[in-house]
Amino acid sequence: MYKYVVKRLLLLIPTLFGAAVLVFLLLRAVPGDVCQLRLGGGGEFIDPAALEQCKVQLGLMDPLHIQLVDFLTGFFTFNFGESMWTGRPVALEIGLRFELSLQIAIMATLVSIIVAIPLGTISAIKQNTWIDYVVRTVSIAGIAIPSFWLGIIIILGLLITTQAMTGVPWMPPIDYRPLWVDPGYNLSMLIWPAVATGYRYSAVATRMTRSALLEVLREDYVRTARAKGLLEKMIINRHALRNSLLPVVTIIGIEFAFLMGGLVVTEQVFNLNGIGKLFVESVTNQDYVMTQSLVMLVVTIFVLVNLVVDILYAVLDPRIRYS
């Protein structure tokens, strides 16, 4: 087990290195550059001296391989450079927004687990009844609904209901206050994007829980439990559900990619100043330094989450022993 973890951690290095090189090359293939865009954004005359100075300042004049070495050393020493747009350190800009996005991500995962496990369980126990059909249809539809549209519909619903109930339309607040400072305010703001993002997540997890539980319910030991007269409730809770949760853990790892993609759009809908919004802004402004840092951040988190899921899998299921 210990050996396996070390091996996996070592394997992360070539993957992250490859990803870093790929990101670096991708973003250097851009026609035009941020200096031209920044100085001549409105189509006005660009002073060649200012352009030159800007390029030197941002290191765009260095040979490509020097830029790459700078980028890699920066990445592995957590020094990401300054934003080409605001001029402030990338780490600072990310740090300001990280908490908000992390909280939505965690809340979305919780929402999906709270929804998925009971729904998937009911659906499996009542297989081929109308309950099962409803749950399955809702979960297939859940995968098809774009999270940004769900966000718009949630805002619309809130506006209409609050208008009808209090006479004053209410919108979730948009300035962030940490959970431990003002819990009520914080939750009233972030629960909606968490639901919009988590819904899709929960749809996939519901289907996974259902099929995993159906498989376990056909196992011999479940029949044995029934034969010895155990209550159905006990069989489900103690014997079946526990063993069917493994694939659900995997899904959390796989779907994490969708969660991060979902955050990018959801933050836009709810106008939240998080990592996702920063990412979209950096792409719009051709802020390479910011874009490449954010892409690397996302890739690193994604790869790490998948590693944790694999290890968790081994911890939860004693039959699995990686060598």
Partner: peptide, 23 residues
């Protein structure tokens, strides 16, 4: 190994990175 590197990018993030280059 190359595919592993590509798979480390979530789909929407990769698509956005490509858009940032191509426009």
């Amino acid at each position: 190994r190359v595919m592993d590197v590509f798979m480390a990018f979530p789909l929407v993030i990769m698509a956005l990175a490509v858009v940032s280059i191509l426009g």
